[in-house]
């Protein structure tokens, strides 16, 4: 019985701690303050624009798709327009944050 209990406890712990899975992480106004205090460069996306979260998320995707397709096109001999300096893609130093939203509600 003792073995059973130990086993059960072990399995319960596994099940309990199984995953901090898919945990939502939220930015808050405190983040900007903390980043400023610590000297981290940050930028806020255009959340003030009159555009809902899903529309904005999809706009980023359309832009990404256009850039990727442009690069594929360029690789076939056309002049490059996408920001791809030698060594890879351009990454700006500033950390992106957004304090205004947490989730995109879904209908399904």
């Amino acid at each position: 019985m003792r073995i059973l209990m130990i086993s059960a406890f072990g399995m319960a712990l596994i099940a309990d701690s199984a995953f901090a899975q898919d945990q939502a992480s939220t930015a808050s106004n405190d983040v900007e303050g903390a980043l400023s205090t610590q000297g981290v460069d940050y930028a806020v996306d255009d959340s003030a624009a009159e555009e809902d979260d899903r529309t904005r998320a999809r706009r980023y995707l359309r832009q990404a798709r256009a850039m990727a397709l442009q690069t594929q096109h360029d690789s076939k001999g056309e002049p490059a327009e996408a920001p791809a300096p030698s060594g890879g893609l351009q990454i700006d130093d500033e950390v992106m944050v957004n304090n205004s939203r947490r989730a995109i509600p879904e209908e399904n």
């Binding site: 898919d22 930015a27 996306d45 950390v95 944050v97 995109i104």
Partner: peptide
């Protein structure tokens, strides 16, 4: 669950 777009820092 929801589908959520956020940032690398999140």
């Amino acid at each position: 669950s929801d589908l959520v777009q956020d940032w690398p820092l999140d």
